[in-house]
Amino acid sequence: MNPLHLQENWTALRTIVTKEVLRFARIWVQTLLPPMVTMALYFIIFGGLIGSRIGEMDGIRYMDFIVPGLIMLAVITNSYSNVVSSFFSSKFQRHIEELLVSPVPNSLIILGFVGGGVARGLAVGVGVTLVSLFFSPFSLHSLPVTLSVVVMTSVVFALAGLINGVFARTFDDISIVPTFVLTPLTYLGGVFYSVSLLPDFWQGVSQLNPILYMVNAFRYGLLGTTDLPLGLSYAIIIAFIVGLYLVALILLNRGVGVRS
């Protein structure tokens, strides 16, 4: 990035992020509302109806245990799907070309789309947290851990969504990963149970799941309990951010999926 153009780049970044936020805000009925409704159902069914029979998980009331995981589930899927659908539709409608002909560096295109994805992830995260207050008392063990984990996790999945968007050629391609990879990994990532309940073998397998570390670190931020070392969670999240960012940058620099 040319330092001479710092002011211009800042304007460009703000433009992209604003445009991305307006995009999902305009269609809030499709983007912001559904996750809150779904999560309210999870709280009622799993937390309220079934949870009351389960009792405690890791020494915590079951309803309270699943709240962090469900917030995280919403943040992850919304960060991801915001970027994948926005990037794909900008290819599909060709307005990605508006960015490609302009002097905006690829790093800023990535930052802009990720900014939009994080904004949607956090907006939904806050919404789901508010919904959870009807079912579970608010608890906050560490604000810095909670905030940093949720923001960084959101960045990870926004970046992943961008990469998916780069490769996507059809509308099917943008729902395959969320359906067959993200949702299963999140469900198996300790949203509904503590992995310490699993047999040793499956505990080992679970530990290969990066989402497990994110959910655990977030739960630690809110409730103060975790099955895994916090430092390891941070290391994994940061490694994913760096790795995915570099992949996205290389793809855009090569013009994969956008330039013939």
Binding site: H5, A12, R14, E98
Partner: peptide, 17 residues
């Protein structure tokens, strides 16, 4: 799905205006 003026104003933004 963008209003007409925004199409133009956003493009200006990409050029740092």
């Amino acid at each position: 799905f963008e209003p007409v003026a925004e199409v133009v104003v956003n493009q200006a933004g990409y050029y740092g205006i």
